[in-house]
Amino acid sequence: MFILSCAIFQAFPVSSSNNYGGLFPELYQISCPQANEIVMSVLEEAISKDPRMAASLLRLHFHDCFVQSGGPYWEVPLGRRDSKTANFNKANVNIPAPNSTIQNLINLFNKQGLNEQDLVALSGGHTIGMARCVSFKQRLYNQKGDNLPDVTLEKTYYNGLKSICPTSGGDNNISPLDVASPIRFDNTYFKLLLWGKGLLNSDEVLLTGNVKKTKELVKSYAENEAIFFRHFAKSMVKMGNINPLTELKGEIRNSCRRIN
C-alpha cells in the first residue's frame, strides 16, 4: 500500500519556497490528491491491529529529524524525503539516551534548534508506547552505583517495575511509558511525572532536574491538556522541518529497509 503511494509521490516532484524549508502541506495536491486519504487509511489499519504502532511512528519521526537532519491535530508540511544514507554514529550521538540528564536533553534539543518548550512538549509523546527494561533498569537497582533505587520513584510504582525488570535478565521485558493510559494520547504522562511515576530518567528529570522552565511546563501540561496539545502540535511541525531533504536531495524509498 505504501509502495503504491510512494511511487506516485516520487514521480511528480514539486518545488516551492516557503517558511518550511521546502515542505508544505499541499505538496501532493495535484500529483496525488488522494495522498492524505491513502496514508491515513494505512495508518488506521496498522494502529487498529497494533496500538503500539502509533508510538513507533512518533519515535521514527523523531529519530529521522534528529539524525538525518484521538490527540492533537496539526497540518503536516509534506515533502520530507528519505536519506540515501544511514549513519549509526550520528544516531548514537544525537538521540537522547533514556538516562540523560536535564542539561544533556536541553543541549541536544538546542543543537537541533529546539527549545525547552519543545523538549517538554515532545517528551509528552511518551503518553503512548512502551520501553524495554534495559532502558530503565538502572533506576531500580543502581542509580548511583550503590545498588539503591532512584529516590524520585514512587514506592508502589517502583515495586511494580521490579516485578517486570529483575536484577538480572529480562532486559527485553517491556513496561508502558504511561502506566495509566498507555494507548491513549492525553496529558496523563505529565500527571504521572508529578506523582513520581515517570518511567525513564529522561522523563522524570523534566520535573526534578532543577530547571525552572521545564518544571513549570510539566505542571502546566498536567493541569491543562489543551495547552499540551497545542504546544505538541507546534513542536512536531518545528521538528519536522529540521534540515529536511527535499526533491533530488533525497528519495522516497519503495522499501523502507533499503535505498531504491
Rank of each mutant, 00 (worst) to 15 (best):
G113L: 13
G129E: 03
F66P: 02
L114A: 08
K84Y: 10
L58G: 12
S100V: 00
V134K: 15
L140F: 05
C133N: 05
C65Q: 13
F62H: 07
N94M: 13
S123L: 05
L140C: 09
P51C: 06
K111Q: 14
L78M: 15
Y73E: 15
A86P: 00
D50I: 00
G70S: 12
D118R: 04
V67G: 01
F66L: 15
W74P: 02
R52L: 12
H63Y: 09
L57P: 01
H63M: 13
F109R: 01
V120P: 03
P98A: 04
S83M: 10
Q103A: 06
K144R: 11
L108Y: 01
P77L: 12
D118C: 07
F109S: 02
L105F: 03
L114S: 10
P77S: 11
L58Y: 10
L140V: 00
D118H: 10
R52N: 15
D146E: 10
G71C: 14
L140R: 06
N104S: 15
I47M: 09
G124Y: 08
T85S: 13
L60G: 08
I47L: 02
V67D: 03
G71E: 10
T101Y: 05
A55N: 06
E75C: 04
D82F: 11
F88V: 09
F136R: 02
L114C: 12
G129T: 01
T85M: 08
A97Q: 14
G129Q: 04
N142F: 06
G145L: 06
V134I: 05
I102K: 03
F136C: 06
A54H: 09
V120R: 04
K49H: 10
I95S: 08
H61V: 02
Y141C: 09
G79H: 02
S83G: 08
A55S: 13
T101R: 06
Y73K: 15
C133K: 02
S135V: 01
N89S: 14
W74S: 11
F62A: 06
R52H: 09
L105I: 00
G70K: 12
G125A: 09
D82Q: 07
G124A: 07
N115P: 14
W74V: 06
K49C: 10
N142H: 04
P98M: 03
S123I: 01
